[in-house]
């Protein structure tokens, strides 16, 4: 396992450093000593069977779950602990979290806000940026995801694919240093998956740093710079997409690829 645990020291391009993260719920050991780095502009697909801890890992990265052990560093700043070593308070944690964008499987849009307000909420209320400026940017971001004509609608009036594109626009509006996607297309009708993947492909090409949990194997292969494969709380493969898909080294990965019918 050591061979894939932070082999090199962090560089100035290391956006995210995950070191020795462990997390249990009761006696269910969900994450066991997870370590990996992400360089600026890297796209990592996090794969693994359901229940292996992918969501929990993403939630540890932005401290929605507090890990039992290990460090998370975002551009060399430690998550969850202030400089003095004391635990971060609500305000400090909020500032750290606002530097990480997250996209959820079930969208989790705020239903009482219009599309535009959803996108503006965090920049205005968390980053305290100028409202007018935020609005212009929000309109631009929504245009980028193809929703310029839906800005004043409530999320409930949108299709799943449109909702998820709002979810992505909402994350982008914070200008995050890294984007986390937790199965962004799993709740969508097959017909609508393409439009969301298209937006994500565009982001990847644009140099965004992204961690993507997905079951879209073809997409993962095309868009990722690296594949991390997890099984029962461990990272057991961490390699290029070609290596992983064409020559999986572990039986678990072979079984997994077989089960998702990746040929």
């Amino acid at each position: 396992m050591n061979a894939i645990a932070n082999p090199k020291p962090a560089t100035t391009d290391t956006v995210l450093r995950v070191q020795g993260i462990s997390k249990s719920f009761g006696d269910n050991h969900v994450l066991k000593d997870i370590s990996f780095d992400m360089q600026k502009g890297e796209v990592v697909s996090l794969l693994g069977p359901s229940g292996c801890g992918k969501s929990t890992l993403l939630r540890c990265i932005n401290w929605l779950e507090e890990p039992d052990a290990g460090h998370i560093r975002l551009n060399s700043e430690r998550m969850g602990y202030a400089g003095s070593g004391a635990k971060m308070n609500d305000t400090q944690l909020s500032q750290m979290r606002s530097r990480i964008g997250m996209v959820f499987q079930h969208f989790a849009l705020w239903p009482h806000m219009t599309v535009l307000e959803n996108v503006m909420a965090s920049p205005v209320h968390v980053q305290k940026r100028d409202r007018k400026e935020v609005e212009n940017e929000a309109r631009a971001v929504l245009k980028r995801v193809g929703l310029e004509d839906k800005m004043d609608m409530l999320p409930s009036r949108l299709s799943g694919g449109q909702k998820q594109r709002v979810g992505i626009a909402r994350a982008l509006a914070m200008k995050p240093e890294i984007l986390l996607f937790d199965e962004p297309t799993s709740a969508l009708d097959p017909m609508l998956v393409g439009e969301v993947l298209e937006v994500m492909r565009d982001l990847a090409a644009d140099g965004a740093t992204m961690v993507i949990v997905t079951h879209e194997m073809k997409f993962a292969r095309q868009v990722s710079s690296r594949i991390i494969f997890m099984d029962s709380g461990h990272i057991i493969e961490n390699r290029s997409p070609e290596d992983f898909f064409d020559h999986p080294q572990t039986d678990k990965a072979k079984t997994f690829l077989h089960s998702v019918q990746y040929k």
């Binding site: 932005n62 929605l64 609500d90 305000t91 909020s94 500032q95 750290m96 979290r97 606002s98 530097r99 990480i100 997250m102 959820f104 079930h106 989790a108 849009l109 705020w110 239903p111 909420a121 965090s122 209320h125 968390v126 980053q127 909402r170 994350a171 914070m174």
Partner: peptide
């Protein structure tokens, strides 16, 4: 729906 409350937390809202 608590999930959108958690989303607010993830987006840095205090």
């Amino acid at each position: 729906d608590r999930s959108q409350y958690e989303a607010a937390q993830a987006f840095g809202m205090t």
